[in-house]
Simulated assay, not measured.
Amino acid sequence: MNFSLYIAKRYLFSKTSNNAINIITIIASFGVIVGSLALFIILSGFSGLRTFSYSLLDVSDPDIKITSSKGKTFLYTEDIHHSLESNTSIKVISKIIEERVFLEYNDKNEIAYVKGVEENYTSITHVDSVVSVGNWLDKDLTNTAVVGNGISRKLSLGILNFGEPLSIMVPKPGIGFINPNNAFYKLNVQIVGLYSGTEEFENKFVFVSLKEAQDLLKFKENQFTGIELKLVDNSDADLFAEQLQEQLGNQFKVQTKEQLNEAMYKVLNTENFIIYLIFTLIVIVALFNVIGAILMMIIDKKSNLKTLLNLGATIQEIKKIFVLQGFLLTILGMFIGLVLGILLVIIQKQFGLFMITQNLPYPVEFRFSNLFIVIATITILGFIASKIASSRISNEFIEK
């Protein structure tokens, strides 16, 4: 066995005659355990929040969205249809119409977006899975709509209120004098469902059938504002979007889900990084206890070190003893902290001990990447702390 490692293990696991040093070592170990535990749980929590946030986007945004880069609308030609239908990476194609509209219900008004969708739209985003009250659009029913809970609250809307329909109005295009009594195209609809989601999503859309949106806006049969795509599993959305953009040309804009929600993705990634830095700082503070424990051990074992030096041990070998002792102390504390952290994450995921709301447990997610980050962080910082503590050893110090 390595000489320095053998003595380091003896120093770490054997009690000293000085109880103060034993207590300091226990405190240092506890600090590493808590630091490792906290860092892993925080990273797992943010991984869970990220996954939860992305799942909310899965019901509001498609994998790929195609819009016109010149104007609001475009004509869906045979060339476009053939380009999309022949692409093996595309699972579902759905044409949409989006337009900002004026909503009116019982003398209450609100600005929102009407979104006309095809029957297969629920295969694109699974928005029907978040309809909390009522049902999704039925192809056999006309003049019906599904609105967000946010819009419902603002307008005091209920479902199947046949006494008073929701009026969807859009200004008529044109120039010159506008008769205020005839300035809008209008569509009256009955609300058949309310959907939930992010705050922005709940306050944004009124879903109607594609045909009704075309009739409201007086669009041509092949005139749309966008095309939304569902890709086959395990497709590279970024690469696909780049290739499709080249294929369609600069008259179209092809965006991925991440590009559609660029601000949200940046916020999540930035928050995760900042929280990691904050808790790494906490770990660094905890490792000062390790430095203190090693320094106290060096002072306590000073006579032993002099004996080792006289027996032929070099200063570097003696320094290595305490580097290894601090490193082993850090690794042991990290291992215990990670075991506890993994158990807590699994328990939270299975049983939901901590709740955000009555029905929503705080999301966590076990990832090996988080495990690697914690191991790398604690190991590197623990090694540095041990090196700092052992640098106190010198010939002059031992001979004093």
Rank of each mutant, 00 (worst) to 15 (best):
E365P: 04
E221Q: 13
Q350C: 04
G382M: 02
F368W: 13
F205D: 09
L281G: 11
N143E: 12
E202M: 09
L268G: 02
Y362P: 02
E221N: 13
S83F: 13
Y265M: 02
P361A: 01
D236S: 08
L338G: 04
L210Y: 06
Q245C: 04
F368N: 00
I347H: 11
I159C: 04
F240L: 06
S209M: 06
E246V: 10
F177W: 14
F288L: 15
Y276T: 04
L287I: 01
A112Q: 01
K319E: 07
T225R: 07
T16S: 15
V189R: 09
I278T: 00
N234T: 09
L268P: 01
I347E: 12
I80G: 02
A237V: 12
S94H: 07
V323A: 01
S394V: 00
D79T: 14
L229I: 06
I378P: 02
N22K: 03
N135A: 11
L244W: 01
G150N: 01
V254G: 10
R10H: 07
D300I: 09
N188S: 12
L324Y: 14
S17K: 15
F184A: 05
A145Y: 05
L311P: 02
I23K: 02
I7D: 03
F40W: 06
S44I: 02
D61Y: 07
W136K: 06
G352E: 10
I398R: 09
V32T: 10
T77Y: 08
P165G: 08
G292S: 14
L343Q: 09
S303W: 04
A237I: 09
V101G: 02
I398V: 08
S390W: 05
L141Q: 14
Y276L: 13
F13T: 05
L231G: 10
L49Q: 06
S89Y: 11
H126R: 14
Q325H: 04
I24V: 15
I315R: 08
L166T: 00
S47N: 15
K319D: 00
L56S: 09
I378R: 03
E199P: 02
V285Y: 05
K349G: 15
S29D: 01
L5N: 10
Y113M: 14
I124S: 10
N222I: 01
I393V: 10
I191E: 10
Y105D: 08
